[in-house]
Design a protein around this nucleic acid. Sequence first.
DNA 1: AGTGAGGTCATACCCTCGGTACGTACTCTC
DNA 2: GAGAGTACGTACCGAGGGTATGACCTCACT
Lengths: 238, 238
Amino acid sequence: MTHPAKVLRAARKTTRRQDYSSSTKRSLLDNAEALFTAHGYAGTSLDEVVAAARVTKGALYHHFPSKLALFESVFLRIQQDTSEQIARRIDAAGDPWERAQVGLAAFLEACREPHFRRICMQEGPVALGHERWADAERAASLGLVKTTVDGLLADLGGGEQLADALAAIFYGAIRSASEYVADAGDAEEAAEQVQAAISAILAGMRSLAGLGVPLPTDGGSAGEVPDDLAASPRRRQR
Amino acid sequence: MTHPAKVLRAARKTTRRQDYSSSTKRSLLDNAEALFTAHGYAGTSLDEVVAAARVTKGALYHHFPSKLALFESVFLRIQQDTSEQIARRIDAAGDPWERAQVGLAAFLEACREPHFRRICMQEGPVALGHERWADAERAASLGLVKTTVDGLLADLGGGEQLADALAAIFYGAIRSASEYVADAGDAEEAAEQVQAAISAILAGMRSLAGLGVPLPTDGGSAGEVPDDLAASPRRRQR
DNA sequence: AGTGAGGTCATACCCTCGGTACGTACTCTC
DNA sequence: GAGAGTACGTACCGAGGGTATGACCTCACT
């Protein structure tokens, strides 16, 4: 058996110099993640980051062009890890309705991780700006929701034109639900309530389809809604 | 007839000095609102604000103890105006389901106002911090949603223990829906989709109740959910 | 092994911006 | 009309993001 170090270096085909560099970068990312999680984006100074990572600002600015770019790297790393994790659990589930339940549970769980909650859900939109954050979300969390919703609608048969809107709605619902759970005194009980509430919503949609009620109706199916309110927000009732 | 100026001053019971002061403060609030809307909290410097309001930092710091306090004043002013406006429209509606529809339409409309959208929905949580923002929201927008949801549940009969969770869920759903509408290429069409989607959800809940399905079921009613994912229900089916 | 090259990082500095200390002018009251 | 207090301006400080410059260290090539 050869020497472990030699095997590693040979296998990874990296120079000592590259090891140093990537180690420095990784340390910056790790420490930045911890500090951003603890104090937020604006509340974290680069001096704190470089001190924690035991480097200087020169090193930081060699690896990242700006504070924002550093945050974005941290953000993307967490987001990708988390969404892959959730996707794996969804894929392990069976029919669309079970997948929705599993996805919800997995997402609620992820939102109880402080770093995901703080960096991806709270700081992300404002630090990166709504535009870039929304793009990243579309590719990750929202994408998962969209896929799941597509599955549900396919199972119900119909309502495809509502898929995007429904995905956005469910995504916001889950997001807000996670805040509700995180803020609740009894997180377990809150999580149960959320599961029950969303189950009820899904069950309602399912029963609607069973009743032969067409999903893609324009307003009015939940109660008498004046035309001018259901159709175009421009025209308001006096 | 007495002198006009005397009449005015006597009627309003304010001194010229107080007029000047409140005018200065109002100008600061107005200009800060415009700048915060355009460039966000971090992107707006106090120098810009005082220049726009044609005063100096001394004046600003006489009226507001900090930049954050200035932002909070702007925030609260917009939030109160908007929620009062929405509340009036809800109160003008009839049964709970119509109230929900009207409230949704009014909220979607408000979210298309740039200053409400940017300051109350986007910058608020991060600038004020989640805690203070959540408190303010509970008293305003979320309060409206909670009241409306309470009305729905009362009409359905049952599910009261889910009211808080449902309100949080619907609030997030509406929030996200408003983003969806704001980001959409065709806002009109997007708003219609959102109205239709939420109508479908509400109709589903209504039909569930009509079918005699009890609302407060613990998970699993939408599909088979593995025990370990069902968030430790106190009583599980089966 | 020696050496040039370039990637990697440290040091020192600038600039913006939130916040403070203090001075001034004006207005109201007695 | 004199004192008092409010409203506001001016000058400055310190924190923090960003930059210019150069040293060191590794690596490839001879």
